[in-house]
């Protein structure tokens, strides 16, 4: 039984105006197979949490811990975290010119597993996952994210999720910029990975829309760098009706504190 624990996490970012405190004591426990939705207004620190878990060098952890099955994730490099089973589906996946999707997927799979995948089974897996995500087979020979539409980029992220089979996936606004068809396809992919591998999911989103297709076990409302409220799926329904307005007072007060 795998578990990802985030304890009293405080994170700063260096900006041109000086140090900014973004996360102010986040506590979260995600067990294998659980789906947690993190919802919150823009600027509340949701993406910072995602990138900090993945180990982006821009974010400095000043206090707290992230543990994966008791192992200190913060001491791991970015690639070590991925090999330990943490996956981040990015909001803005970058282009890698000259590197084909096929080459990239095989390289990543080899790195994660510690050995090259058996060629025949691997090709079949890739084909099947691409077909499930309604990705044209020509996709495989294109360069990673180069000239991809927004929807294609997100599908490519979920393709990697399905093929690399991590223990925990952080989905950073995977729903943003998707039309309803693409949203359904992407959500189905996440649900497949969840039911096939017992994936634990941290679903970061601004909108409740994706929660129609991916049912969360827990919903956490993120405001001003910490969890302001948590509950079950019913909390998302309430947010859909009421929006984030009732948290805005707290948020603007907090922003006044951090204002340069």
């Amino acid at each position: 039984m795998s578990v990802l624990e985030i304890k009293n996490l405080h994170v700063n970012v260096e900006t041109e105006q000086g140090t900014r405190e973004i996360l102010r004591g986040v506590d979260l426990v995600i067990n294998e197979g659980e789906i947690h939705a993190i919802m919150g207004p823009n600027g509340s620190g949701k993406s910072t949490l995602a990138y900090t878990i993945a180990g982006h060098p821009k974010y400095q952890v000043v206090e707290g811990e992230i543990l994966l099955d008791g192992e200190n994730v913060l001491e791991m490099s970015v690639d070590e975290r991925a090999r330990a089973g943490v996956f981040l589906a990015m909001q803005y996946p970058v282009e890698i010119p000259g590197v084909t999707v096929t080459n990239f997927l095989r390289t990543a799979k080899t790195a994660i597993d510690g050995e090259a995948p058996a060629i025949r089974g691997w090709i079949k897996d890739v084909r099947e996952s691409m077909s499930n995500l309604k990705m044209d087979s020509a996709f495989a020979e294109r360069n990673v994210n180069e000239g991809f539409s927004g929807g294609e980029k997100k599908r490519n992220e979920i393709l990697q999720l399905e093929l690399l089979k991590p223990k925990f996936a952080v989905l950073d606004e995977t729903d943003s910029g998707l039309d309803v068809d693409a949203l359904k396809i992407v959500s189905e992919g996440v649900n497949r990975a969840h039911s096939n591998t017992g994936l634990g999911v941290l679903l970061i989103t601004h909108y409740t829309r994706i929660l129609r297709y991916i049912k969360p076990d827990f919903v956490h409302v993120f405001v001003a760098g910490k969890i302001a409220e948590q509950g079950g799926a019913e909390l998302a329904d309430r947010l859909e009706e009421e929006g984030y307005d009732r948290y805005q007072v707290a948020e603007s007060a907090a922003e006044a504190v951090t204002a340069e």
Partner: peptide, 15 residues
């Protein structure tokens, strides 16, 4: 581009 490096490393690929 350090973002390219981050992206690849976030998929388990060594630096």
């Amino acid at each position: 581009d350090d973002e390219q490096l981050f992206y690849l490393m976030a998929r388990g690929i060594r630096e």
